[in-house]
Amino acid sequence: MHTPDDPHLYEEVLVSPMYLAGSNGIGDAGFAPVAHWPHHYLDDGPCQLLVTSPDQRIRVGWFGDDFELWRISAATEAASATRWTATFNHVTPAEIVAGLTTALAHDYAEADAYDSNGRFLANPSIYWADAVRPLTDAGWKRGVPTTPGTVEIVAPDGQAGAVIDRRSYGPDDETVTLWAGPPGWGTRAEAVFTARAPSHLIAATADAMADSAPVIRERHQIHREMEHLVTLTPVGSASPQTSRAPTPLDVRRTAVTQAVHRAARAPRTAAELRVMAARSRTATSTRTGSPNLPHATMARTRLSPSAPRRSR
């Protein structure tokens, strides 16, 4: 546990497993795959940043002051009713969100070239296992469900899992939940998908969640109740060649690189889009000294009451 005067409070560390790293208070990694899409800044509303596909059928919303920090949805037309929605709470690492936004960027690029409807509007598989296959392929096992009519998949460490609700629900009801961390406002990460969410998009999110690569956080961003569940490695000691502590720009670049590398298995067209987006963001950051996302707005994200704030 860290005290406010701890000299290591803002030390940057590699956190593993990634799904227990929590949010770093900004959404750069989650927005990186769609950085080339139109941005709409809505500082006066609950949704502070809305990134949409060029035809506005896909929407990625950042709700900086809400418990549900991210709200991502798709519709058949820009003005039509939402077909499916995915929400990510304020504890969920943005690197997990990037699993979904990477898949959406790929689907949209493919639809633009070959299919006006788009795979991001596909019906979900009739087999529940398809949505969580990356987890079972990574060695996650079926657990004992706490609610009749549900299926649970649990990570080997018991600190993350998926719940699939197989009961009959309406199209807008929540049926798949990916979770990580012990129950609690500041400790439990949750990603929730409604019934018509395509299975391959849920699987892409689950694949990011199961990624074994660590992520960068400052020590104070790790909730005190999570410290005994994660492995922390100071960034400066991670490589013998490291001669300086990484700057905030280095951290942002690392987050973007991780998001791009995680999607390397995608078809070439999607990979090219993500690399283009990453290069665009890096170039902008280099010129301006800040990312092309609303850092000041994102800084208002509610954190755990125990999380200290840097004095200015």
Score class of each variant (00 low, 15 high):
residue 239 S to N: 13
residue 255 A to P: 07
residue 240 P to T: 09
residue 150 T to R: 07
residue 31 F to S: 05
residue 287 R to I: 05
residue 264 A to R: 10
residue 1 M to L: 11
residue 35 A to Q: 05
residue 8 H to L: 11
residue 213 A to F: 09
residue 90 H to Q: 14
residue 46 P to W: 15
residue 9 L to Q: 04
residue 178 L to E: 08
residue 301 T to C: 03
residue 255 A to H: 14
residue 41 Y to A: 04
residue 301 T to G: 05
residue 92 T to G: 03
residue 289 G to I: 06
residue 250 D to L: 07
residue 291 P to M: 07
residue 32 A to N: 08
residue 279 R to H: 11
residue 228 H to P: 00
residue 299 A to L: 05
residue 11 E to M: 05
residue 102 T to C: 11
residue 85 T to A: 06
residue 222 I to R: 00
residue 73 S to C: 13
residue 305 P to V: 08
residue 76 T to K: 04
residue 270 A to T: 09
residue 105 A to H: 04
residue 310 R to G: 03
residue 164 I to A: 13
residue 147 T to M: 04
residue 198 P to Y: 13
residue 9 L to I: 02
residue 253 R to H: 07
residue 269 T to S: 15
residue 148 P to I: 04
residue 173 D to F: 08
residue 92 T to Q: 05
residue 263 A to Y: 01
residue 146 T to R: 14
residue 106 H to I: 10
residue 264 A to H: 12
residue 298 M to A: 03
residue 259 A to K: 02
residue 230 V to G: 02
residue 285 S to L: 10
residue 203 A to H: 03
residue 305 P to I: 03
residue 170 G to N: 13
residue 131 A to L: 00
residue 164 I to G: 00
residue 88 F to N: 03
residue 255 A to W: 13
residue 87 T to P: 01
residue 28 D to N: 08
residue 177 T to D: 14
residue 61 G to L: 02
residue 267 P to V: 07
residue 27 G to E: 10
residue 146 T to V: 12
residue 63 F to K: 09
residue 267 P to D: 15
residue 34 V to I: 15
residue 95 E to R: 11
residue 292 N to Y: 10
residue 293 L to A: 01
residue 243 S to E: 10
residue 153 I to P: 00
residue 13 V to G: 02
residue 134 P to G: 06
residue 91 V to N: 08
residue 217 R to T: 06
residue 312 R to M: 02
residue 132 V to Q: 01
residue 220 H to K: 12
residue 93 P to V: 12
residue 121 L to D: 09
residue 123 N to A: 08
residue 3 T to M: 14
residue 106 H to C: 09
residue 169 Y to C: 10
residue 39 H to N: 02
residue 155 A to G: 08
residue 131 A to R: 01
residue 117 N to M: 15
residue 59 R to S: 00
residue 118 G to D: 13
residue 183 P to A: 12
residue 275 V to P: 03
residue 1 M to H: 11
residue 46 P to S: 14
residue 203 A to Q: 04
residue 75 A to R: 10
residue 25 G to E: 02
residue 200 H to Y: 06
residue 263 A to Q: 01
residue 212 S to M: 12
residue 287 R to W: 13
residue 24 N to T: 13
